[in-house]
């Protein structure tokens, strides 16, 4: 297979062009979102909200409404309920996510068992680039535009509330509102991603990019940009893989990210070991950075 066949042939099909545009938008959104998800230690939220999508889609289709209407309703309800439950003292986010989203997923499974529908369950679970239509593109573009506006205008508040929510609140950041905006943004990104990534694989897409970026980037901005680029690359590679090996797009995108993580993890670990050995020999910069002169400032 030559390069032309590898990269150009898929674009002879209209659905692949649509899937690529949607995949790039979704990869960028999931990559940027993953930084906040990972730093907030809420990796479970993507998993949970994606599961609730199935419930919403099943109930929506059974009621005869558009697929996205059910999905949006389910994720928004989930996000609001999670936000409400975690505000109660002593209830952690992971427990709230586990209860709320799994219950909505269970409703979906029950509805699918009782009501005969024409839902392609495998496509909902694992993603399907063949199914990406103009509506999906518009949804992805709309959510991406809204997410970008939120990220730009609330960037400082999001970072402050993620790093140190207590002090952020004292310093005038309305952390409750920021939490709600974050939850709803996550819900919107999840809904927009379902067609390409599938319900079961969104969780990885909102974790892996940030996990890779944190191994290499030094500042928050660099982490955010790296994770966004990694998300896009994983989507592009995964979509080509999906086309050529005839596997659902969700697994190939996630596998592209997972392989990248494994490579970066091994390389950075090896580099770290080399630095330690060099530092022990006394012929290089000490492991963990050059802290000479720091104590004198303390």
């Amino acid at each position: 297979m030559d390069l032309g066949e590898l990269f150009l042939t898929p674009f002879q099909y209209a659905f692949f062009g649509r899937a690529m545009v949607a995949g790039i938008l979704i990869g960028a959104m999931c990559g940027a979102l993953s930084v906040f998800v990972v730093l907030r230690r809420m990796s479970y939220i993507g998993h949970g909200l994606a599961h609730s999508v199935l419930g919403g889609v099943a109930v929506g289709v059974a009621l005869g409404v558009e697929l996205y209407v059910g999905a949006i309703a389910a994720t928004v309800v989930s996000a609001l309920l999670i936000d409400r439950v975690t505000r109660r003292r002593g209830m952690h986010a992971d427990a709230a996510i586990g209860i709320v989203t799994t219950a909505i997923f269970a409703i979906g499974v029950a509805v699918l068992s009782i009501v005969p529908t024409r839902i392609n369950v495998e496509a909902v679970l694992f993603g399907n680039i063949l199914g990406v239509d103009r509506t999906d593109l518009w949804v992805a573009a709309g959510v991406a535009a809204a997410f970008l506006v939120i990220l730009v205008t609330l960037y400082k508040r999001l970072v402050f509330a993620t790093f140190d929510p207590e002090v952020a609140q004292v310093h005038g950041v309305r952390t409750g509102a920021i939490e709600l905006v974050f939850s709803l943004s996550t819900a919107a990104v999840v809904v927009a991603s379902v067609r390409v990534l599938g319900v079961l694989l969104i969780a990885a897409a909102v974790v892996i990019p940030a996990a890779i970026a944190r191994l290499t980037a030094r500042s928050f901005g660099a982490t955010l940009i790296s994770a966004t680029v990694i998300g896009i690359l994983a989507s592009v590679i995964g979509l080509f893989g999906s086309f050529h090996i005839n596997v659902p797009s969700g697994p190939t995108i996630v596998l592209a990210g997972a392989v990248a993580f494994a490579i970066v993890f091994l390389v950075t670990a090896a580099l770290g070991r080399r630095r330690v050995v060099r530092a022990q020999r006394g012929d290089g910069t000490p492991a963990g950075g050059n802290l000479q002169g720091v104590r004198s400032n303390a």
Binding site: V159, A168, G172, V173, R218, F220
Partner: peptide, 16 residues
């Protein structure tokens, strides 16, 4: 958390 000293300090006046 991937923040530099300068970034942490600057966050202090986020409100304004």
């Amino acid at each position: 958390f991937p923040l530099t000293v300068e970034q942490v300090v600057l966050l202090g006046d986020t409100q304004h």
